[in-house]
């Protein structure tokens, strides 16, 4: 029926190459020296200074206070990504369990109280959020970095959709088998949700790792800087320098993009399932 023409392949190959080339450029260029890049421009071929550049970026104490290393920033990004993903899964599974499997007064109202958070992204309430954090004394803490990001119902939405798709008869069978709410959750629902948890974990980890605006506002102390914050930092240092540290900037970018890219590529089937089956 639908004949595949060489043109189809051409479009796909060209399109994919264009999409991927910037990543390749970032990786390759990061292995050249700054001077080399300054003279010869960006590169699609590997250079010989990769090890030196990356060890500098990871261990060299930089920043305004000279205290923060790339390794430290990676650690902070990891804490943010993991903390956010785990927190999101725990909170939203519990909330979704209550909303789907319990009959109680104000259930609909609670649904809307939680799901209204989907209406307004953090970006539009960033100023007052910052003020609230300052009042609570949570600036420059991991709690302040992670917890406010949890105030959105995306995860709850995912799990609610998933729980609704679990056949009613399983709960009925479990109740006849003598399982109460706690036992049903632990024995039946949790094992059934394994794939969903994995999918949500991947999506949320990437989301947390990739956060920019919030960490930028919350962390003025460099020991709390994430990689995203570090990128902003390295660009601010550039202004006025003769030969900017192109290589280090690229190395930092590669460090920042590699973990989420690797996770998403390795677990892509879970990731796509989680993404497309529950929309946002």
């Amino acid at each position: 029926m639908n004949k595949v023409t060489p043109f189809d392949h051409l479009v796909l190959i060209l399109g994919t190459l264009l999409m991927v080339t910037p990543i390749a450029i970032a990786v390759m260029t990061s292995t050249h020296t700054a001077a080399d890049i300054h003279v010869n421009g960006l590169s699609l071929l590997p250079g010989g200074d990769g090890i030196e550049t990356y060890s500098t970026v990871l261990t060299h104490k930089g920043g305004f206070t000279g205290q923060v290393t790339g390794a430290r920033m990676m650690m902070n990004s990891l804490i943010l990504g993991l903390g956010f993903a785990v927190g999101k899964i725990v909170l939203s599974m519990l909330a979704a369990y209550a909303l789907v499997y319990f009959r109680f007064r104000f259930a609909t109202a609670m649904f809307w109280v939680i799901f209204t958070t989907l209406l307004l992204p953090l970006e539009v309430r960033i100023m007052p959020s910052y003020q609230v954090m300052a009042e609570l004394g949570l600036l420059n803490t991991y709690t302040g970095l992670i917890v406010p990001l949890l105030a959105s119902a995306t995860g709850t939405f995912y799990f609610r959709q998933f729980f609704k798709s679990v056949p009613d008869e399983l709960l009925e069978a479990a109740r006849i088998d003598g399982a109460g709410p706690v036992r049903f959750f632990i024995d039946i629902l949790l094992p059934l949700s394994r794939n969903m948890i994995a999918a949500v974990f991947i999506i949320m980890f990437v989301y947390g790792w990739n956060q920019y605006l919030w960490p930028m506002l919350m962390t003025t102390e460099e020991s709390f800087f994430t990689l995203m914050r570090g990128i902003k930092q390295i660009l601010q240092v550039w202004i006025g320098s003769q030969i900017p540290d192109y290589n280090q900037a690229f190395a930092l970018a590669v460090l920042a993009l590699l973990p989420p890219v690797a996770i998403v590529v390795v677990f892509q089937s879970w990731f796509i399932k989680g993404l497309t089956e529950s929309d946002k």
Binding site: P167, E169, L170, E172, A173, A174, I176, D187, I188, P191, L192, R194
Partner: peptide, 13 residues
């Protein structure tokens, strides 16, 4: 009592 469901409702895991 024990019940047998139309879709069996076996615990898949």
């Amino acid at each position: 009592i024990a019940m047998v469901f139309q879709n069996y409702a076996l615990y898949p895991h």
